[in-house]
Design a protein around this nucleic acid. Structure first.
Lengths: 216, 216
DNA sequence: CCGACAAGAACGAACGTTCATGCGTAGACG
DNA sequence: CGTCTACGCATGAACGTTCGTTCTTGTCGG
């Protein structure tokens, strides 16, 4: 377990856009505007008029792309959660065989995602409650799927004795809590680089699990 | 450092009310209603009419007690933050001399507060952004004052070699992040008791700091 | 000519706040 | 002691604004 293995994506300009360009010109602009405004003012604090203005289109035209305000939020959260789970599980699969290595890779991928898609993560943290019914269950299911990746890793490490914490069942949740809230204070121009964040939290996670790096 | 030292308050019914009873009958009811609704639906999602109804009074009468919706939120956050800081620093002062003991006591007090005043903590986490000007700076200052307690403890422990983490400057923030978000998932009737939570997170914090319990 | 995209006007509802009014009571005053 | 007054508490109505959504109309390329 080397402590400064490079994070997958070191060039901020090369970070793939969460929204991309689907050919439909305004769709991306609307999603981007909604992402920013939901994060800045919260779901109820950002009006459809605000979003339309920020996207450079008209209020009524929003409804040619998304049937409701809630559906627009759900669309954003689904994209973010799906990409997050994909990046984390991909990092785990390309990591070495050791559970400690895999958990370190998972934490790095997670932290890296939080830094890259900070606004999306902010929304995912605090705006899910404004969804109901199908929209909500879908988003929550994807979020839980991601948490399970970490829970399984921790359980495996505890079973094999690599993690000696007496609370393996709950440690994964604490690790994710620690990493998620990075979105609430991270500044790309601040003292800590993205690489610093990944290094720190990978080490935090292993320490919290009271891991034995030797592997046995 | 005993791992199961009792948390200050074990009887839920004896937890002092955050709001209390100031003689003014409706004031407490209004604050309690606002606390619950702000936590359930967010600041912008809970209307003054909702709060009045939940408090059992009329809409216009709210303004005989609080001059604005934002001031009502600020009042709640000030009370919560002040009580939190008081309980944490009190716990530190009554703990033993060792830095590790003191940090453990601080974490226990913090977690205990989160469990006791869960709704208040939920609001403090996500609704501060809706405050502006004086109201905001006041709340943020009190929140930072509490964070400094932890930062100072960690710095002292790192300087004396009790905490061997290579990132002492940032570990305190991660510990608080971990403990704060308990408010988002804790259920008093769930598998984990308040005592469990305190034990776990005190241990997490020390492990995260890579503490040497022997003290040197 | 049909469907995707666009815009303005309008809808009813809900928002935070203010106003006008009234009741009860504690304190000042002759 | 009696009375006036001022203030705290309470209410329903109303103000102007903004909300999410829909309607109507129109353009334009395949």
């Amino acid at each position: 377990m080397n402590d400064r293995s490079p994070v997958p994506d070191l060039m901020p300009d090369l970070v793939p856009d969460l929204i991309g360009d689907s050919g439909r010109g305004n769709e991306a602009a609307i999603l981007r505007a909604a992402l920013r405004l939901y994060a800045e003012r919260g779901f109820n604090g950002a009006s459809m008029r605000d979003i339309a203005r920020a996207a450079g289109t008209s209020l009524s035209n929003l409804y040619n792309y998304f049937p409701s305000k809630a559906r627009l939020l759900a669309e954003l959260l689904n994209r973010a959660n799906a990409l997050l789970s994909a990046q984390v599980s991909s990092a785990v699969h390309t990591a070495g065989e050791g559970v400690a290595e895999q958990l370190g890779a998972a934490v790095r991928a997670y932290v890296s995602f939080v830094a890259d898609y900070q606004t999306a993560m902010l929304i995912a943290l605090s705006e899910v409650r404004h969804l109901e019914g199908e929209e909500r269950t879908q988003v929550v299911a994807e979020r839980d799927r991601n948490q399970e990746i970490f829970e399984d890793l921790v359980a495996a490490g505890a079973a094999s004795g690599v993690f000696t914490t007496p609370y393996p069942q709950d440690a994964a949740r604490s690790i994710l809590a620690m990493c998620s809230t990075i979105a609430t204070w991270y500044h790309p121009e601040g003292r800590l680089t993205k690489q610093d964040l990944c290094d720190q939290h990978a080490r935090y996670a292993l320490a919290l699990l009271e891991g034995r790096v030797d592997g046995r």
